[in-house]
Amino acid sequence: MTEGATSLTLVATGGLLVACGVYLLLAQSLTRLVLGFILAGNGLNVLILAAGGLGPADVLTQAMILTAIVITLGMAAYLLAMAYRTWQLTGDDLVQDDVEDRRIANEAHREDLRGELRAQRAEYRTERRAALALARHRRQELRDSLREARRELRARARLQRAIAARAEDYEYLEEETETDTDFTRPPERPAEPRTEPRTEPRTEPRTDKPAEPPSDPPSDKPADPPADPGGRP
């Protein structure tokens, strides 16, 4: 160490070389690692040179640098041989992952997948629950409408039975009153004569369900409608 002064250029060069070397040392490819090692090694040699200070040549720094160069060279040769061997064995020169690291990474990945699966299952469960609720609702609706239809059918059947009974009554009445039977108009027969007599007897049995089937008779007998509205009120 001479005057305590040193060249800023030397220090900056050394620092830059070391920085580049460290950057390369972080790579996974062995070739890059070799380059990084050489760069950083030489950068440090420059730093040793800078450590010697300016002024008359410092013999010790040169001796140290020479030794360090030899060591770096030997290491570089060894690393290159190893990179070549890796290339022979695996087809690339990448440093492979640590087994333990990989195991831990796998475990973490598995845990991630498990979490994903759990989330999916939860989602599926809520979806399923919603679908089930919807289905139950639909079924309820269907059941309701079915019940409605059945009630309607029953009502219609009741009505038909009532009509049939009325018809019998009417026939019976007709037989009793002994009107002259005109055989030329059988289709109209139930319609016309039914109008008058039907009004009275129909109101009596119908007291329990008077307003129920308003549109039924027309579907059964097309001839009824003109008669019905008139007879019902």
């Binding site: 070397g21 730093l47 450590a51 010790l60 640590d98």
Partner: peptide, 22 residues
């Protein structure tokens, strides 16, 4: 490869320490 790179890196650091000390 892992062993050698760790060893080589720490050796580089050693050279840096020597430079600073010197």
């Amino acid at each position: 490869a892992v062993y050698i790179m760790v060893g080589a890196s720490s050796s580089l650091l050693f050279v840096a320490a020597i430079a600073v000390a010197y």
